[in-house]
């Protein structure tokens, strides 16, 4: 698999999914917190105003309201920036949505460092860790437009709370119209025998680019799209690690407690394997252009390739 030149944002995929869901499923209700233009719920609002509620700048209220709506039988999509959905409203998500096992699909945009210029206060770097720790919560980090669109549609049929992390920037299109999302099923996008590279979200195309670079040097990286972080695809991860004996995780998130943390927990208990976690190294972000920040914090494809060389060397 190679990285295409065409780019589209994952939030556009979210908007497309909501429109399809709105047509097909009368039960779908969408909530936002004064960020409808940014999260892209605006498009659903235009088409189905009677099934859209803007809660204003009030994320805690948004999540508890979503819980109440779900308790009346609605399938609720609740959106705001990832930092506020999981940070400000954490307790509402844990104690009202998840504890009651309600059908709230938290689709949060602006996850990660690629938020860019707004800076640290708006860059969610701990959201995967926070959501992963909540019992009953499922956690999905799709990588491109199609994976996002299909994941968002699929979770309508999954019972209980789900967290979908969506991004701000345009990213290369990796999949196509035929993509079908399966919860908890990691995808081997590029087989390789030397090192396993697990990536999610924005970092998946960086991992694929790194694999190209490594292949030119004779190093075969196995690139796995780990779109579902909870439940984790134990089988695919363990089988790949058993073949390559080396694992790298790549995420636009803190190295503490996120996808890398989940994989480290699995390998530590089941099959200790030399491993490196690529991500934000227990630090806050900063203002800057998205791609500059990716370079600055060591999240670029050349960084992944460098870590792979060291691990294999």
């Amino acid at each position: 698999m190679t990285v295409s030149k065409e780019t589209k944002s994952t939030r556009d995929g979210y908007a497309a999914a909501l429109l399809e869901l709105g047509e097909k499923n009368e039960n779908v209700v969408v909530l936002d917190a004064d960020l409808a233009k940014s999260t892209q719920t605006e498009k659903f609002k235009q088409r189905f105003p009677e099934r859209f509620v803007d809660c204003g700048v009030a994320e805690q209220n948004l999540m508890a309201t979503a819980a109440g709506l779900a308790a009346t039988g609605k399938t609720v999509y609740a959106s705001t920036f990832a930092i506020f959905a999981t940070g400000r409203a954490y307790d509402q998500v844990r104690n009202t949505i998840a504890y009651s096992n309600l059908d709230v699909k938290i689709c949060a945009s602006h996850g990660g460092i690629t938020v860019g210029e707004d800076g640290s206060s708006h860059q969610a770097l701990e959201d995967i860790a926070l959501m992963r720790a909540v019992p009953r919560m499922k956690v999905i980090v799709p990588a491109d437009y199609y994976e996002t669109r299909e994941a968002v549609k699929a979770v309508a049929e999954i019972e209980g709370p789900v967290y979908v992390r969506i991004g701000r920037p345009k990213v290369p299109v990796l999949f196509g119209e035929d993509y079908r999302f399966e919860l908890g099923k990691a995808l081997i996008l590029r087989p390789g025998r030397d090192v396993t590279v697990l990536a999610c979200g924005f970092m998946l195309h960086k991992a694929l680019e790194a694999a190209e670079e490594l292949a030119a040097e004779g190093l075969e990286a196995e690139i796995i799209d780990l779109h579902t972080i909870k439940p984790l695809d134990r089988e695919v991860i363990l089988a790949s690690a058993a073949r390559t004996r080396r694992v790298i995780t790549c995420e636009e998130h803190s190295v503490l407690g996120g996808m890398g943390g989940a994989v480290a927990e699995l390998l530590g208990e089941e099959m200790p394997t030399p491993m490196r976690r690529i991500g934000m190294k227990d630090t806050f972000g900063t203002s800057g252009k998205a791609e500059e920040l990716v370079e600055h914090f060591g999240l670029g494809s050349r960084h992944i390739a460098e870590v792979a060389r060291t691990l294999c060397g």
């Binding site: 707004d118 800076g119 708006h122 900063t286 203002s287």
Partner: peptide
């Protein structure tokens, strides 16, 4: 808002003199 600037997108008390709290 540039990388490395003392002026972040939102106020940062550690970077900007005169900002009392982030």
């Amino acid at each position: 808002r540039q990388l490395g600037s003392i002026l972040q997108g939102h106020p940062d008390r550690l970077k900007t003199p005169g900002v009392e709290i982030s």
